[in-house]
Design a protein around this nucleic acid. Structure first.
Lengths: 225, 225
DNA sequence: AGGCAAATACCATAAACAGGGTAGACAGAG
DNA sequence: CTCTGTCTACCCTGTTTATGGTATTTGCCT
C-alpha cells in the first residue's frame, strides 16, 4: 500500500494524509492548492459536502482533517466526530467564519484541536498545520478568548445566604457521610452541638435533610467536588 | 492629570498604559524597547521584581500587564491577581517559558487572557498586544493545547460500577431530599422497595448514607447539578 | 455599659433511615 | 431451557436524624 514502510514512529517522515472539507468552491480550491504545495503532507481529497467526507473517512485513513463548519448538507462537527472515532490519533482543525461561543465549544468538545478564522492567510495556514503536527493548538485569538472566558467564568452562583465557617465545615463533613458523633469528634465539639449547626444550614439552604443540603450546596458552589 | 479628557470610551484613543514585569535584565530591556516603540501604548514602567510591581500597581492605574511568571521574589500570578482586583478592565498577558499544565491553568484562572512563550519574536509580541486590545486572546499554540486538553478531558470519572436507570432515578430523588414514602409515590413503587434500591446504590458508590451517596454521585458526574 | 447575634452546649422525643434476611416475576445471556 | 441480574415486595431491629426547648460564652455594635 504505502511506499516507505521503514521508519516506525521515531521521525514523522510519513507524509501527513490531509482531508479538506469546504463547501465554497473558490475557497476550497485555494486551500487545496496551499495544501498541495505543502511539502509535509499529502492531500487525500478536497470534499465539498459532509456526506462525501464521511464516506471518504470510512474508506481510508486520514491524519489531519481541515474542515469548515456550516455545510449545505450538515455540520462539520459530524466529520470531526467520525474522524475522532475512526482515527483517534488524527487531528482536526476547523477553518470557519463561525465564532459564536456555542459553535466553538461544540467543535472543541468534538475533538478539534485547531480553530482558525477564515481570514487567515496562506502562510498562517501552513504555519498552523505545522504547529498542530508538533503538538500545539493553533487557535485564532478571538476564538481563544472564548475558551479563556469559559475557563474563568465558572463561579456559577456564589449567590445566596452566606454560611458561617463553622457551618461550611459541618457541611463538608455531611457531604462525606459523617454522623453526628463523627462530626463532633472531627470538629472537637459536643455531639449535641452538631445538629444545631446542621439545622441552621438547612434553614439557609432551604433544605430539610442532609442529602438535599449537599445537593443544594454543591449546586451553589459552596463546596468543592 | 491627563491630557485628553475628551473622548469617553467610544474610541480607545487614550494610550494603553503598559506595565512590564520581567526579572531577566536583557530580556526586560528588549521587551521595554519593543513596547516603547509601539505607538498604541505608553510604557508605565519596566519592573524586575514582584514587589516593585505590586507597589506600582497600587499607585497608578494600568491597562495592560505583561508579566513573566517565575520571579526571584514570588510568582507573577500574584501580580495578575492584584491587577484584576484593582483594575478589572485591565488585561494581563503572560510571557514565560513555563508551560506546564498547572502553571498555565493557574495563570488563566488568575485572569490572564494572553499567554506567549518567550521564543516569540518582537513582531509577534506587538501583534499579540493589538489582538489582545481588540478583544482576542493571543496564546501560543502549545499553550492553547493545554486549554483544549482541559476542555475535552472533562469526562471526570465515568468509571466505576454502572447504576441502573432505576437507581439513577432514586438517586435524583435522594438528592432532592425525598423520603422513602415520597420516593415510593414519585416512582409509583412500594415504599418497601425503595430502601432496596438505595442499599444497592450505597454498595455501588461505596457510601453509607444519603449525603455521602449524593456527594459521590455528583463527584462522579452521575447526576447533574 | 448595654444589647444583640453567633457559636457553643445539653436534653428529650418522634420520625426516618440502614441493614439484615427472604422471595417472586421477568428479561436477556448462555 | 436454565441461569443470572434486575426490579419488585415484605418484615424486623437497632441506629441516626430532625426538631423542639433552654442556656452560656464570645465578640461586635450602638
Amino acid at each position: 500500500m504505502t511506499d516507505t514502510p521503514a521508519s516506525p514512529d521515531l521521525e514523522r517522515t510519513d507524509p501527513v494524509r490531509v482531508l479538506l472539507l469546504e463547501d465554497d468552491t473558490p475557497l476550497r480550491e485555494r486551500f487545496a492548492r496551499i495544501l498541495e504545495d505543502w511539502p509535509g503532507g499529502e492531500l487525500v481529497a478536497a470534499c465539498a459536502t459532509l456526506d462525501e467526507t464521511l464516506a471518504l473517512l470510512r474508506q481510508q485513513p486520514v491524519d489531519l482533517l481541515m474542515t469548515d463548519l456550516n455545510l449545505p448538507d450538515g455540520h462539520g462537527i459530524e466529520a470531526i466526530h467520525l474522524l475522532s472515532k475512526l482515527y483517534p490519533n488524527a487531528d482536526a482543525m476547523v477553518i470557519s467564519v463561525l465564532a459564536d461561543d456555542e459553535t466553538v465549544l461544540a467543535a472543541i468538545e468534538a475533538g478539534a484541536v485547531g480553530y482558525l478564522l477564515k481570514d487567515a492567510d496562506p502562510f498562517e495556514l501552513v504555519e498552523s498545520i505545522e504547529e498542530l503536527r508538533a503538538g500545539g493548538s493553533p487557535i485564532s485569538s478571538s476564538i481563544a478568548r472564548i475558551l479563556v472566558r469559559r475557563m474563568t467564568a465558572p463561579p456559577p452562583s456564589p449567590s445566596g445566604p452566606p454560611l458561617t465557617p463553622r457551618e461550611t465545615e459541618i457541611l463538608r463533613g455531611i457531604a462525606k457521610g459523617f454522623t453526628y458523633a463523627e462530626l463532633a469528634e472531627w470538629l472537637s465539639i459536643s455531639r449535641q452541638t452538631v445538629p444545631v449547626h446542621i439545622k441552621n444550614i438547612y434553614r439557609k439552604l432551604a433544605a430539610n435533610n442532609r442529602s438535599e443540603a449537599v445537593y443544594e450546596a454543591s449546586r451553589r458552589g459552596l463546596i468543592r467536588l
